[in-house]
């Protein structure tokens, strides 16, 4: 009986710890969500009532509208380019042994080491030098670099999980290398590639540090517009737009999870 009691105690300790971690991790988002429904003119927590008025303002504020559209444009191009380049890299690294393979892997991982600040600053200088200024092209180029390691990693994991016998089987049945790619390899990589694209989209939509450097008023993305807003106003609109961004990216994350499972997005399991 005492063993059962001890087991019960251990279980409740375990779940208590899990609950604490969950609360700790989500509390900032929770505070923001609560503040966003406050009727007060000032940012206050806890809120003194309930109102959607700041959501109305967030939706109707022209800077946010433009920034959201900018973000979508940048994300669409950046994620797609990132997927294309990342998949090609992943395929190279998985299939071929060549001099400098290790170096290529290191370069692919470098955005994880180089601060976003540095990447953004570098592209700002480069864009100015090339006369591109803070155009979409520069913003997109920056976002491609920042999302590349995640996309290539996701595709790489999918490639690793692909049984090489499948491609051999197709070849044996008369499929040329191109047919094998078209009918077997690519269809089987699709979940990984869609997941990689969505992951890149989430990162791109919420990226702030580098974007602050490479965007101008005309090309600024939502996080940058939000930063500008906080510097001028102190009303809960900012909380409302934050909440909207959280909801939007959560939806994307759920979609990505459906496509390939969170474990594989984060590239935890290669077997």
């Amino acid at each position: 009986m005492s063993a059962r009691l001890a087991r019960g105690l251990r279980a409740s300790l375990f779940w208590g710890a899990v609950a604490l971690i969950l609360v700790y991790m989500t509390i900032p988002a929770f505070v923001v969500l609560m503040t966003s429904v406050s009727p007060s003119e000032l940012l206050e927590f806890p809120p003194s009532g309930f109102s959607f008025r700041w959501y109305e303002r967030a939706f109707s504020y022209p800077d946010f509208q433009n920034a959201f559209v900018n973000g979508l444009i940048v994300t669409a191009f950046a994620s797609s380019l990132s997927l294309l380049i990342g998949s090609a890299f992943a395929y190279l690294v998985d299939r071929y042994v060549f001099a400098g393979r290790a170096a290529l892997e290191a370069v692919l991982a470098s955005p994880l080491i180089i601060p976003h600040f540095t990447t953004g600053f570098g592209f700002l200088l480069l864009g100015a030098d090339l006369g591109l200024g803070q155009s979409y092209a520069v913003v997109i180029a920056t976002h491609v670099v920042l999302t590349l390691p995640f996309v290539s990693r996701t595709v790489y994991v999918s490639l690793r999980n692909l049984d090489p016998a499948l491609e051999r089987a197709a070849t044996n049945l008369g499929a040329s290398p191109f047919e094998v790619l078209k009918r077997v390899t690519l269809p089987l990589l699709r979940p990984g590639m869609v997941g990689g694209w969505l992951l890149a989209a989430i990162l791109s939509l919420t990226e702030f540090t580098a974007s602050l450097y490479v965007t101008a008023q005309r090309t600024q993305t939502l996080p940058v517009a939000m930063y500008t807003y906080v510097r001028e106003y102190t009303d809960p609109t900012i909380a409302a737009i934050s909440a909207l961004l959280i909801i939007f990216t959560t939806a994307l994350m759920l979609l990505a999870n459906r496509c390939l499972g969170l474990r594989r997005i984060l590239a935890i399991d290669v077997h």
Partner: peptide
């Protein structure tokens, strides 16, 4: 090349196309 050899192979892992 293997795709022009007209052999039929059964693999240890079966290698059926899962899609």
């Amino acid at each position: 090349p293997p795709y022009r050899r007209e052999t039929g192979m059964v693999f240890q892992s079966y290698a059926l196309f899962p899609h």
